[in-house]
Design a protein around this nucleic acid. Structure first.
Length: 220
DNA sequence: CGCCAGGGCCTCA
DNA sequence: TGAGGCCATGGC
């Protein structure tokens, strides 16, 4: 996939001066780390293009910061993130994230033990395993492999697992087979998303699939 | 028009 | 623990 698609440089973040999101291969500042966490919640079961609209709204309203999100009323926040869907739920989820981050600094979070940190994230209302691992990997640079719907679909079609495999089991399969390196996990997940979006779709385009040689579902 | 998108919570067996 | 309902917008 890397040969076919090239480096993805996830997670996409906005950059002052740039028109759209940029892919710089990981967040450089606490502001970008915070933006990754917000995006991780907004993109739950939602196309990223819709998340971009919501993040742009937040940015133009000067709401894309911890302090601003703390102040803004829930109903106002919900209106701003409307394009990302599930906006009432997601507004509440962002408030819970903000409450969590108010207790510590991002620097402190990055220094704390990864396993304990994951547990604390999972305690938050609105953060499940995928969102927690996205935050851990892409915002805090902890080596957790992110499993999503694309990952499950591709892995099951390849014959690596059953369709109904649990999150933790599929994550364990990847983590047992790969060295625990942040850059590797980041790029691997991004490539799976790219492949799942464009080729290994619900109705797969096996003719253009670079994995067809090793795929059990391929009829070619 | 229907399907799908980088889930998670709640309820009920 | 697992299946099912619910949350909601926008692109194709």
């Amino acid at each position: 996939m890397l040969e076919a698609y090239g480096r993805q440089g996830w997670w996409p973040v906005t950059q002052s001066g740039a028109a759209g999101p940029t892919y710089c291969g990981g967040p450089k500042t606490d502001q970008q780390r915070f933006e990754v966490m917000v995006g991780a919640i907004l993109t739950q079961n939602t196309a990223w293009s819709n998340v971009e609209k919501a993040i742009l709204n937040l940015q133009q309203s000067r709401l894309l910061s911890l302090a601003a999100l703390k102040r803004v009323p829930l109903s106002t926040l919900a209106k701003k993130i409307r394009p990302s869907g599930y906006f009432n739920q997601k507004a509440r989820k962002l408030k819970h994230l903000v409450q969590f981050l108010t207790g510590t600094s991002i620097a402190t979070l990055r220094r704390s033990p990864a396993l304990q940190l994951r547990g604390r994230l999972l305690m938050l209302w609105g953060i499940g395993p995928e969102t927690a691992d996205s935050i851990l990997l892409y915002a805090l640079n902890k080596p957790y492999f992110v499993v999503d719907a694309y990952t499950k679909r591709i892995a099951s079609r390849l014959g690596l697992c059953e369709q109904g495999i649990s999150y933790n089991c599929l994550q364990a399969i990847f983590q047992q087979q790969l060295p625990a390196r942040v850059r590797l996990y980041s790029e691997y997940h991004a490539l799976l998303v790219k492949h799942g979006k464009e080729v290994c779709r619900p109705r797969p385009h096996c003719g253009q699939c670079v994995l067809s040689r090793v795929c059990q579902r391929c009829i070619c």
